[in-house]
C-alpha cells in the first residue's frame, strides 16, 4: 500500500469499513510511516474542528425560535388547513 492509497482508504478506515486484511495492511503502513500518521491525525482533527466550529454555542445557533417565526408558521398552517393530515 502506498501513501496515496492509504489516503484513498481513509474514509473507509475511519468508518471501520475496511475489510480485515486491508485494515491490517493499512495499520502496518501507518505504524511505519510518520507522514501518513500525521496525515491521518490531521484528517481526524479536521473533522473534529469542523464539528466544533459549527456546533459550538457561540456559533450561529439560536437558543429559541423567534416568536414571530412561530406565529408565521402557525398562521401559514391556518391559511392552508388542507395541509394538515388530520383534516384530510
Amino acid at each position: 500500500m502506498t501513501c496515496k492509497e492509504l489516503v484513498d482508504f481513509m474514509v473507509d478506515y475511519l468508518s471501520d469499513q475496511l475489510p480485515k486484511g486491508q485494515k491490517e495492511v493499512f495499520e502496518l503502513h501507518l505504524s511505519l510511516c510518520p507522514p501518513c500518521l500525521s496525515f491521518l491525525e490531521t484528517y481526524r482533527e479536521t473533522i473534529e474542528l469542523g464539528r466544533c466550529a459549527c456546533t459550538n454555542p457561540d456559533g450561529p445557533v439560536p437558543e429559541a425560535v423567534p416568536e414571530r417565526l412561530v406565529d408565521a408558521i402557525l398562521a401559514a398552517r391556518k391559511a392552508h388547513p388542507e395541509s394538515d393530515s388530520h383534516n384530510r
Binding site: T2, C3, K4, E5, P35, S38, E41, T42, E45
Partner: peptide
Amino acid sequence: DGHYLDPPQPWHDDAE
C-alpha cells in the same frame, strides 16, 4: 511512486 509531494506534518496543537 505514491509518496507525498509535500510530506504532512503534525499540527501545533490538538483540536480542542
